[in-house]
Amino acid sequence: MFAYIVRRLFAGVIMLVAMSMMTFVLFFASPIDPARFACGKICSPQQIAQVRKGLGFDRPVWEQWKDFAVGVVKGRDYPADKSLQKSAPNLVAHCAAPCLGYSNVNVTTVRDEFKTRIPVSFSLAIMAFIMWIVGGVGLGVIAALTKGSIIDRSVVGVSLVFFAFPTFFVGLFLLKFLAIKWGIFPVPNYVSIANGGVWNWLVNLVLPGLTLALFYMAGYVRMSRAFVLESMGEDYLRTAKAKGLAPRKILFKHTMRAALTPLVTMAGLDLAGLLGGAIITERVFNYNGLGKLAVDSIAVYDLPTIVGLVLLLGSFVIVANIVVDILYAFIDPRVRVG
């Protein structure tokens, strides 16, 4: 098992290296000159060249990538150009290892930026995750057990409606009615546990969490319904019935365990994707999470932040994949490796 994890992690690191390279290449493949963009509207060619040098965009792509890679391992100073460092030593920013880069736009290291953003996105993701797992699986199982009835149809139908509506619509709808018009919830505004306590943190997360959860829930309702129905046709459930097991026990001990295992994969990967930020929901509720950061940094061609986000998201997904596989080995004895 340990060897398996090491092997997977090793493959994951190689994947991240390749992803960072791709990001550099794609960034410079864009028709828009990032230096010109950073310089502003009225800018002479000399100023653009100066900015380009300051951002380090004047050198070949692969050299920039090399500097970045070295920075991850050893840390580095910004700007990279030695002559610029000499001319303005007070402006030199040090970025300690593991350095993901320094954002001139946000005037801080990418790592520090992440530190303030991650709790927001994580809180949101976990809140939504709990909601959609409980709701989605619960409703899915109920739908499966009442297959063909009016309950089944309405559960599937309603979840589909929420899936079909765009997230920003559902978000704004909830915001308008539940928060602003009826005042059931406060207008959400992220409060960390350290600042406002658990209750405040939680209450402020309900609406954005629900917005996300409603979107994801539809898939989980349908999947868990299908998996439960599928496993109800399994031979071993007939065996369980034939030995005289009570229906409740058949459902909880035999059906559910087999039916819900495949959901682990889905749930793990969905959660990993969401940990990297929910772009639309964060914008609707004005949460300063990773998703909002991604949109903002792309809009202003902030290469260090973009590369950092790509790697962060990539590693979430890679780790989630490994965790899912490990979980599987615990759930399903057949996949246990040596």
Partner: peptide, 21 residues
């Protein structure tokens, strides 16, 4: 209450007839 106690059944494919977990 009679199933498994007074009448039992075995099936064709013993692999799928047992819960894999």
């Amino acid at each position: 209450r009679k199933r498994g106690r007074e009448v039992s059944m075995i099936f064709q494919d013993p692999l799928s007839a047992m819960h894999p977990y």
